[in-house]
Design a binder for these strands. Sequence first.
DNA 1: CAATCACCTTAAGGGTATTAAGGAGAGGAC
DNA 2: GTCCTCTCCTTAATACCCTTAAGGTGATTG
Lengths: 199, 199
Amino acid sequence: MALDQQVIVSAAREILQQEGFDKLSLRKIADALGVQTPALYWHVRDRAQLYGLLAEQFLREVIAQTGLETTGRDWLISFGTALRDSHRINRDSARLVAFVQPSQTVEQEVANVILDHLEAGGMSRDLARIACSSMQAFTLGWSLFESNASVRPMMIGNLDSDAAFLLALTQLAEGLASVDLSFQQTNGTKPPPPDLFVG
Amino acid sequence: MALDQQVIVSAAREILQQEGFDKLSLRKIADALGVQTPALYWHVRDRAQLYGLLAEQFLREVIAQTGLETTGRDWLISFGTALRDSHRINRDSARLVAFVQPSQTVEQEVANVILDHLEAGGMSRDLARIACSSMQAFTLGWSLFESNASVRPMMIGNLDSDAAFLLALTQLAEGLASVDLSFQQTNGTKPPPPDLFVG
DNA sequence: CAATCACCTTAAGGGTATTAAGGAGAGGAC
DNA sequence: GTCCTCTCCTTAATACCCTTAAGGTGATTG
């Protein structure tokens, strides 16, 4: 099998899934591919870029799996749910995302896709940015907490973790969507917050 | 200066603030204290415990700085704001929290303090758990995103980051508080979510 | 006074990412 | 066919890192 950036990313993903983030290393990836460690550097700048590519792949899959709901509220919930499912299925992916600096161009592309979805659902682009950031932030943080064995029992207790997540996610999505409406209708129940722009 | 767990934590904190999480290491801490690296192991089990103590100190300070608002909504907002301020002031503290497994006893204690606050503000203990988890998760995730140079411009754009955070935080807090009301009044606008408990 | 214990040292083992330099092979130019 | 070049990988080396083992020193205590 010819060495390739995609092949390396796949091998890394396999090891991450199998052994977790702590055990992931360039050496182990190279071993799995039957190659010496420095060979990876021909296809990948460094570890940070490799992990960034991995995170990017996860995010792309989430977007592909997110439904085509029409309203902003529903899309946000679908997006958040898909994001959390990804973090649950892909071991330590939350820790990975917390660790890496994804490539800027990719993030730009992904962001545009998301923002287009939300605009199509009737959100202003500025609020869509906030909403999208919020959903990703909330889901990432929740996944990190959830995968933390010592925090989980205190915070979740004997509650159903899925239901608790969905409850909070829904509240956040509805809250953000309601701000959007107040922007558009100008007679919403909540006034828009002041000074949302810099400068 | 006699070596001590607290002294070590303080030195670690200083290096974290000065050089960031990537540059933090036991060796550097030991150097700063004028001591050999293995000396640290007399006072600290391993790196994970040391970082956990650091995260614990941050969290304690946040709780101490959180106001004594009476309503659950206000307390949550105050808590979330203090948490984010801490992450902004203390460099890479979000990445640290994402990395460590804090000690269970400490988390228990802190959780109890928080939950007592929320119960005093009129929340059910179960919803307080969810609310508290949600605020910490959201703030942690937001801080991680915000400190990520390549994600920030896409997600926040030219918006005021402070205002955007506060907007989303407020929506989340109000949403969670409203669920609480519907629990207590049993005539709220939103029905309680089904199957919140496990089993 | 001797023994113990706390605390730190040096020494060593094994892990990591990364760079430098060199070799083997494919492909094209002439 | 020969030579050159470029791609892709190897070996070698550097410089970190965490952690454990074993040994020494000085204060404390019986």
